[in-house]
């Protein structure tokens, strides 16, 4: 019969165990100079630094946020956008619960590179899941000189079923919304894993008739 207490093992994914250091790991990727670091700093420190430096390798920031009254410690990995760093950066993809794809609306190439970044990420996250928690951020909407329209970006995202946010790290537009949407999504995915685990447990009890048979 179903015993009280937490299930002994949860297959991969975040745990709400307070002793665990991090609940969610989120990674931000995208071409160089699109503003990944600035987005992160805006979100975590509520500041925009005019004077910023290229990210070499990866750096980590954390933030505690409440999603549906659940406090979550989110660890956000900032990554260097240069192509040459990709093999190194991709070693940090492992264990991510969510992925933030960033491009610069004033830089068409950074948008065209999204496909590559996404595929690269999905290839390295095992198992490859098409519905892996992801959001796309089109940054620098404060600059008038746009090369990627909202429609084009939205269409690309809609086709892949990824939420799209037009953001500005400089003017703090939509930044928190994007992060929180991703965190929520990651949490839902986690809960899905958690619940399917519970369902599996229940399935084993004599009082519950199996809904599905799997081999």
């Amino acid at each position: 019969s179903l015993q009280s207490g937490a299930p002994p093992l949860i297959p991969q994914g975040p745990s709400m165990d307070a002793s665990k250091k991090v609940d969610l790991k989120i990674i931000i990727i995208g071409a160089l100079g699109v503003g990944k670091t600035s987005l992160l700093h805006q979100y975590v420190h509520k500041r925009f630094y005019e004077d910023y430096r290229t990210t070499l390798g990866a750096s980590i920031l954390t933030k505690v946020l409440a999603v549906d009254n659940t406090p979550l410690k989110v660890q956000i990995w900032d990554t260097g956008g240069q192509e040459r760093f990709r093999s190194m950066v991709s070693t940090f993809y492992k264990g991510s619960d969510g992925c933030m794809l960033a491009f610069d609306v004033t830089d068409r190439e950074s948008f065209e590179a999204l496909d590559n970044w996404r595929n690269d990420f999905l290839d390295k996250v095992i198992p490859r899941e098409q519905d892996f928690p992801m959001v796309v951020l089109g940054n620098k909407i404060d600059i008038c000189d746009r090369q990627v329209s909202k429609e084009i970006a939205s269409a690309w995202c809609k086709e892949k079923d990824i939420p799209y946010f037009e953001v500005s790290a400089k003017n703090n537009i939509n930044v928190a919304e994007a992060f929180e949407t991703l965190a929520k999504q990651a949490l839902v995915t986690y809960k899905g894993i958690f619940e399917s685990y519970l369902t599996d447990s229940i399935k084993l009890t004599p009082y519950d008739k199996p809904k599905k048979r799997c081999c």
Partner: peptide, 20 residues
């Protein structure tokens, strides 16, 4: 023990010779 990988901090140390 704290799950800090050398690559996380030392990549930059190597990449631009501790200049940061």
């Amino acid at each position: 023990q704290h799950e800090v990988k050398y690559l996380q901090f030392a990549f930059r140390w190597m990449n631009n010779l501790l200049m940061r």
